[in-house]
């Protein structure tokens, strides 16, 4: 399998505290990979460094053998990386479909156009993306009245607009009802299968992780402690220690 993302010796320190310490991994084409770990393990910090929201203290991120460390989020997006956030960041003053249209205007490089009416642009295309995430019946509702789970699905539709080759999803199912979680991850799995997109996601819900990911990495206190298939990770003694007791309490208290 060819690699799409390679991370080498990624490191982030805050005043000497190592939030992420020497993390290296790669994501293969068409892979659905999970990054798990307890609170404060450094998952979101990792994600923010991959997507350019944070500058790493050291280390390199390669996308298709091109270095993307130090690039801004929008430049990384232009190179084909989509992202959804742990706390959603849609545009509350627009309707659901306008949120998608906005991303399409960026995709088609129409941001500085002042002649066309924005709500007419790419409406059909946006509607197709909404269909993908089964949101088409809510297209014209104001985004500010959506339920949280629907916001998450909308974010996914927006992230797909630039036809990304890699999707980074930070806790895609946080705050959702159990049935909705499974539906959303099923959707993501379908997208991976049909469109050949690679997905890297972080998650708290172990059911979601074990049911859907091809490959799992476990992060604890800033370090990757193991990786492998669901079966391997489930039976790993160090993972059991991290999740069932042992050294995590202290680490969580320190990061709180």
């Amino acid at each position: 399998m060819t690699e799409i993302l390679r991370v080498e010796h990624l490191k982030k320190s805050y005043d000497g505290f190592l939030a992420v310490n020497d993390v290296s991994f790669s994501v293969a084409k068409g892979e659905l990979k999970a990054l798990i770990g307890p609170n404060g393990a450094g998952k979101s910090t990792c994600f923010n460094m991959l997507m350019g929201q944070l500058k790493p203290t050291a280390g390199t991120v390669w996308l298709d053998d091109k270095k993307i460390t130090g690039l801004r989020p929008r430049e990384i997006w232009r190179r084909g990386v989509g992202r959804t956030f742990q706390i959603t960041g849609t545009y509350p003053s627009m309707t659901v479909i306008e949120n998608v249209q906005m991303a399409l205007m960026s995709h088609h490089r129409k941001l500085y156009a002042i002649a066309p009416r924005a709500w007419r642009l790419y409406r059909d295309e946006a509607f197709e993306f909404l269909k993908t995430v089964e949101m088409e019946d809510q297209a014209d509702r104001p985004c500010s009245v959506l339920a949280y789970g629907d916001l998450k699905r909308l974010e996914l539709a927006i992230a797909l607009c630039h036809r990304p080759r890699l999707l980074l999803m930070d806790e895609p199912t946080a705050g959702m009802a159990p049935s909705a979680r499974i539906a959303l991850m099923q959707l993501v799995a379908d997208i991976v299968r049909v469109q050949g997109v690679s997905v890297l996601f972080t998650e708290h819900d172990m059911d979601v992780v074990f049911a859907h990911s091809h490959h799992i990495m476990v992060l604890n206190r800033g370090e990757l402690i193991t990786e492998g298939s669901a079966e391997e990770v489930r039976n790993d003694a160090r993972v059991q220690e991290v999740y069932l007791g042992g050294g995590t309490l202290f680490a969580e208290a320190q990061n709180a």
Binding site: M51, Q53, R72, P73, R74, W77, R78, R83, F85, G89, T90, Y91, P92, S93, M94, E98, Q101, M102, A103, M105, S106, H107, K110, L111, Y112, A113, I114, A115, P116, R117, A118, W119, L121, I158, A159, C161, H162
Partner: peptide, 24 residues
């Protein structure tokens, strides 16, 4: 009401999301 105005509003509503979808 044009794309430019929408992009401006997007940057106001959520700069993080705007930057993460290619808007400077």
């Amino acid at each position: 009401h044009a794309p430019f105005g929408y992009a401006l509003r997007a940057g106001r509503d959520s700069p993080r999301q705007a930057e993460a979808t290619g808007i400077d």
